[in-house]
């Protein structure tokens, strides 16, 4: 059985995570798009911490016999991996967009200076 203290710490920690994420969204420092995975992480950890029988049952399924809270760590780790992977895809997209922007600026600048030169010579 999971020690009660661990359950309490788990509930508090995951509730805190959810509150922090909500506050960040409220202050517009975090976009909903990137908050959803964090909220899911908090929610799953909250449920598994508060609902002690469920944690035990899942631990049984997974063959974790001695220490059910290990499942909490495993789930938390899994979600963090998901979040990181998600960030890597976001980063890749931003990188591509960033290069594309740089390229367009270079092309536009050249066109603008060419157009300016042309209009200067016709004026003169």
């Amino acid at each position: 059985m999971t020690p009660l203290r661990i359950s309490i710490v788990g509930v508090v920690a995951s509730a805190l995570l959810i509150l922090i994420v909500l506050e960040l969204i409220r202050g517009r420092r975090l976009k909903e798009r990137y908050a959803l995975l964090w909220l899911a992480t908090g929610a799953v950890l909250l449920v598994l911490s508060a609902w002690r029988e469920a944690l035990n049952t899942i631990a049984g399924w997974l063959g974790v016999t001695g220490y059910p809270p290990a499942v909490l760590f495993a789930v938390a780790t899994l979600f963090i991996l998901l979040v990181l992977l998600h960030y890597s895809t976001v980063l890749s997209k931003l990188t591509d967009e960033n290069v594309e922007l740089a390229q367009r600026i270079a092309l536009l600048e050249e066109r603008v200076s060419r157009a300016l030169r042309a209009s200067n010579t016709t004026k003169l």
């Binding site: 960033n98 290069v99 740089a102 390229q103 600026i105 270079a106 092309l107 600048e109 050249e110």
Partner: peptide
């Protein structure tokens, strides 16, 4: 001369030329 505002690496630079 096409001036990239920051370093994008050789491929990104060459591609700018092809886009031109």
């Amino acid at each position: 001369v096409l001036r990239l505002p920051h370093n994008v690496g050789i491929g990104g630079a060459v591609q700018t030329g092809f886009k031109f």
